[in-house]
């Protein structure tokens, strides 16, 4: 008989439920996005959205997957890192569901899940992963039981940098067209490169100075918005690409995986593809439906962990707001 895992993702502004089989087939991946009217993500507002959306999203997932709650073998949830109120809402739903159905619970690291879903969907085995989203900017690779971090941001995440700039510029996002895509579209019409701070420190990066500089230029009003989007993208993407190439040269891995919400950006894809080619490595990008935060990735990582005997007892299912990728043992990776 087929076995199933339901995964709940709620680290930031999306509440999502995925159902996957133990063999790695994604049966459902329903995402309910919380879009704030103004400003960034307000953690409590987002958590309220998650609480309201939970019931409907779970029902939809079961309908889509065409299975019944009783068919589940295990329930996984994103235990961290992320925003406290959002994580707690997802964890509460997961605990309730698991104890009602009397099935085991698995707490999953959100960053590990982004890597695992990328590997599942693109069939890469042992890549250098560039994981770029609104909350994370991490270059990592597997070594001796864990995903080691080679480079990351020293301050804000790449996606956050793009989002804040878009908001400062008065741009609007909507369902299916997040800020990153809006900036990408404008950038494609940019022609003039404005030189901005380019901050690479070892394999780490800093985006806060870049953001401040580009916002200041925006306020001065001397440049076209298209040119600023273009310059911001070119500078920020060159930084992450340089760091990824350094990690690639250092580890001599033969695959490069691009994952996370910003992975959907075509320009970034072409830059990472160029360095992969340069080092004779295979380049893969996570498919769009698995690029943003999603429940399927949590469910799939839950399956991998559960198969290796990892379960999370309720009393240890508290959320971990700053749970680092390189603190997680991943016994399923060889």
């Amino acid at each position: 008989m087929e076995k199933y895992c339901l995964g709940i993702e709620s680290t930031a502004d999306d509440f999502s439920v995925g159902i996957v089989t133990f063999k790695g087939k994604v049966l459902a991946n329903i995402i309910s996005a919380y879009m704030s009217e103004e400003g960034g993500i307000h953690p409590r507002e987002a958590a309220r959205h998650h609480a309201i959306a939970a019931n409907k999203t779970i029902r939809e997932a079961f309908e889509k997957a065409q299975i019944k709650p009783q068919d589940l073998t295990v329930i996984a949830f994103s235990q961290g890192p992320g925003l406290g109120p959002c994580l707690r809402t997802g964890a509460t739903v997961a605990r309730a569901l698991a104890s009602y159905l009397d099935v085991p619970l698995v707490g999953v690291n959100h960053c590990v899940a982004h890597i695992e879903i990328g590997k599942l969907a693109t069939k890469v085995k042992d890549p250098i992963t560039l994981y770029v989203s609104g909350g994370n900017t991490i270059v990592s690779a597997f070594d001796s039981g864990r995903y080691r971090i080679f480079g990351e941001t020293l301050d804000i995440a790449l996606g956050n940098c793009l989002d804040v700039f878009a908001r400062e510029a008065g741009l609007r996002q909507r369902e299916g067209m997040p800020f990153g895509a809006v900036v990408e579209k404008l950038a494609s019409k940019g022609k003039k490169l404005v030189l901005l701070p380019y901050t690479v420190k070892g394999m780490d990066m800093s985006f806060s100075g870049l953001l401040t500089a580009v916002v200041n230029l925006l306020k001065r009003g001397e440049y076209r918005l298209e040119d600023l989007c273009y310059s911001l993208q070119e500078t920020a993407f060159s930084m992450v690409t340089e760091v990824t190439e350094r990690a690639l040269a250092h580890t001599e891995k033969k695959e490069v995986l691009l994952t996370g919400g910003v992975a959907a950006n075509r320009r970034l894809q072409s830059m990472i593809e160029a360095i992969a080619e340069e080092h004779d490595a295979k380049f893969q990008v996570v498919p769009k439906q698995f690029a943003l935060d999603n429940g399927a990735m949590i469910a799939w990582t839950g399956v991998l962990a559960y198969k290796h005997g990892i379960v999370t007892p309720i009393e240890k299912s508290f959320v971990k707001l700053r749970w680092r990728l390189d603190r997680v043992e991943v016994p399923w990776v060889k």
Partner: peptide, 13 residues
């Protein structure tokens, strides 16, 4: 020269 970077940015770096 790095192909992925715009030439002006690349040269400067």
């Amino acid at each position: 020269p790095k192909k992925y970077r715009l030439s002006r940015l690349d040269e400067q770096i």
